[in-house]
Each structure stands twice: as structure tokens, then as C-alpha cells.
């Protein structure tokens, strides 16, 4: 026990302490209302902080995604090269379709001849082996 210095007045003091504990003050409704009003006010500050974070969160996410894509492309140099490639592709697509189309018949005929000659050679080889 904490109080080892039991003296002649110990019992008397205990009676006073017991009496005081029995008269424990009860917080009045006015005090509790003030305390809870304080709590609401302080808590409202927390809510504002949360709302502010939530409001800025999408912008931050968008910004992060764009920044990351930009970095993956190699920064300004990569972005410039990609833009130039896209422009050249569009230019070719818009101005030179006839040039590309002129090669198509020749390519198809050559492919057909090659296919037939290859099969003929195969037939001869097989016949020789069997004969």
C-alpha cells in the first residue's frame, strides 16, 4: 500500500476523504453542453481538412497519371518524336495511297507464281524418290 505512514489521525482523515468522495461534483448540463459544443467545433475543423483533401484528390490523381505517362514517353524529347511520327504517318496516309496501291498487283502475281513452281518442284522430287 502506498501510505505506509499510518498515524493516529489516519482514521480521521479516512472519514474526511470518504465524505468528500461521497460529495463528488456532478457536471451540470450547461458545462456538458459547452464541452460538446467545443467538440463539435473542433471536429468541424477535422471535417474541413478531410473535405479539402477529398476535393483535391482527383486533380492530384490526374496530374500523377499524366506525369507518369509523360515520363514513360521519355519526357519532352520522346513526346516530340512521337508527335513527329504521328504527323508523318498522317501525311503519308493522306497524300500517297496511289503510290502504295500500284505495287499491289505485281506482288500478288509474283506470289502466285512462286507458289506453283514450288509445288511443282516438290512433286518431281517425290516422284524421283519413289521411282
Amino acid at each position: 500500500m502506498a501510505h505506509s505512514d499510518k498515524g493516529p489521525n489516519e482514521e480521521m482523515l479516512d472519514m474526511f476523504f470518504d465524505a468528500s468522495k461521497a460529495q463528488e461534483p456532478v457536471p451540470g448540463s450547461d458545462l456538458m453542453a459547452r464541452i460538446l459544443a467545443d467538440a463539435s467545433q473542433v471536429q468541424a475543423g477535422f471535417k474541413h481538412a478531410t473535405v479539402a483533401t477529398a476535393a483535391t484528390a482527383p486533380a492530384r490523381v490526374t496530374e500523377n497519371i499524366l506525369t507518369r505517362i509523360f515520363a514513360v514517353m521519355g519526357g519532352w524529347a520522346g513526346a516530340s518524336a512521337l508527335t513527329a511520327s504521328i504527323c508523318i504517318g498522317v501525311l503519308y496516309g493522306a497524300t500517297a495511297p496511289d503510290t502504295v496501291r500500284s505495287y499491289l498487283p505485281t506482288m500478288s502475281e509474283q506470289t502466285a507464281e512462286l507458289d506453283y513452281s514450288y509445288l511443282g518442284l516438290l512433286d518431281e522430287t517425290v516422284a524421283d524418290l519413289e521411282g
Binding site: E24, P25, P27, L31, M32, I35, L36, A39, Q43, F46
Partner: peptide
């Protein structure tokens, strides 16, 4: 309370105010 629960403040206040008031009064 920090996460915005309104009841938490009431429970804490009713749990502790009496003791704090008693100490302050003494």
C-alpha cells in the same frame, strides 16, 4: 472522434468530465 464520429465526443465527455471537474474543484 478524429474521424468525425459525433457520438465519440459524448461518450468521452460523459466518461471523464466528472473526474476532471472533481480534481479541479478540489
Amino acid at each position: 472522434f478524429a474521424n468525425g464520429d459525433g457520438q465519440a465526443a459524448s461518450v468521452l465527455a460523459y466518461r471523464h468530465t466528472g473526474r476532471v471537474l472533481a480534481l479541479a474543484l478540489r
